[in-house]
Write a protein that binds this DNA or RNA. Structure first.
Lengths: 241, 241
DNA sequence: CGCGTTCTTGACTGCTTTCAAAGATGGTGG
DNA sequence: CCACCATCTTTGAAAGCAGTCAAGAACGCG
């Protein structure tokens, strides 16, 4: 059961932050407590609100607790490129430097909950978890570049859907073959470097070929094997495990 | 005078590392000395050699001293995407984590010189310079995504040329309107998500329109104003200055 | 039930790719 | 010094993928 679009806290979304970080690095009870305490102080952003402003000084580092957000850049003539999506458990503005300004705008996609990261100097294990989270973020940026540069429309969609499933699954927000997708086809287009019209046509083609189903914000990957074949998609492997 | 393609050390390439980092954060004499000492221990990679292997454990962090390298990913069917170019003064494999594996392959483009970064715990100022270097790298990744996702061929080229000029200028390797370009049109195509044929045609169109000149590895931007107009290219601003 | 947003669809245009082959270019060895 | 070779650049014609413009259908919300 997903509660996309409301501020209600779904069972699956309890402790996403501590859960995700603990999966990235073995945290002890003290770290978990620290994170859960941080998660308690939730902040709310309504849909389509700029949470971070490109070019302005960055605030304190935060974490996504529920909802989706996106990093984006807008060109002078209005063209938009979505650089990445921020999902529950993801960190925002991690590496702070003196006088650092935000490199991109971050905008909430639907209603979003965030919390501040613990401000105390992190333990060794927690620092490791932060570093691995950053490494994953970097990995997905590289994947995005490859997608836009060398995949055609259908491959981009297949690859992106698999990646998103993988990320949501990592924090327990996806089942084996399905996950909630709270974004419009136009946002997908802006993320994948296509037009919304072409995204629509491509999705229909994939639906016709029995690859997937999309209705009312829920994606079902009906043929993962074939999707994976058409995009040599490799799951992220941020550390040698 | 550029010495592209040889191992000879050009005057302009002395101390690129300390020069670049000192421009990113005010370093004291001790830091400069430390970096210059590190630069003395040079390592050489011939053209087209894999310096870092995707998926394998990362070695120690290094710095580019001369020559060009690129981060790339190769798809199963042979398609290649160049994610970023590494220019003199750039850092490689900065953030080390236990068990970290390389997220991408790094390959030398022409003959390259590198050195290890000082292994001692860096001073406050030096750490700041490293952080800003990393922030710049991130900025250019976002720029690359926007380029591939939302710019057409001519805009991609204009934007990329301006960015590359800016980066080389930052380390004193470009003059006001020209810089060395030691890569083939095919590499440019793999970086910009195009085919080499189309890169060629587009460059010729730009040449015909008096925007630039390219011959034997040297680019001359003959009309920067117009280039900037056609790509709302904004120079990187890694810190509020 | 009505309105705005999102999704679909059609026809047409056009940028980019593909395939092929002919010129340059630069380095190497005779 | 020049022939030769590999690599890189340039060019042409044709096909294809994706974009544009426009309008109608469906959906969700109040």
């Amino acid at each position: 059961m997903h509660t996309v679009g409301t501020f209600q806290i779904a069972a699956a979304e309890m402790d996403v932050l501590s859960t995700r970080l603990a999966r990235l690095s073995p945290l002890d009870q003290a770290d978990i407590k620290l994170l859960q305490h941080a998660e308690a102080g939730r902040r709310f952003s309504p849909a389509r609100r700029e949470m971070v402003h490109e070019g302005e000084p960055m605030g304190e580092p935060e974490a996504m607790l529920s909802g989706w957000a996106c990093r984006q850049r807008i060109l002078e003539d209005g063209r938009r490129q979505i650089l990445a999506f921020l999902l529950p458990g993801d960190l925002i503005g991690l590496c702070r430097r003196t006088g650092a300004v935000a490199a991109t705008t971050v905008m909430s996609v639907n209603d979003v909950q965030t919390c501040s990261l613990p401000s105390a100097r992190p333990s060794e294990a927690l620092a490791e978890a932060f570093a691995r989270s950053a490494a994953l973020e970097e990995h997905y940026l590289y994947a995005q570049i490859t997608r836009l540069g060398r995949l055609d429309a259908r491959e981009r969609l297949a690859d992106w859907l698999l990646e998103t499933h993988e990320r949501l699954d990592f924090v327990g927000l996806a089942s084996r073959d399905r996950f909630p997708l709270p974004i419009t086809q136009e946002m997908l287009a802006d993320a994948l470097g296509l037009t919304s019209v072409h995204v629509n046509r491509t999705l229909q083609g994939m639906r016709r070929d029995g690859l997937l189903t999309i209705r009312s914000g829920l994606v079902v990957l009906t043929n993962r094997v074939r999707l994976e074949q058409m995009t040599d998609h490799k799951p992220a492997r941020p550390y040698s495990a």
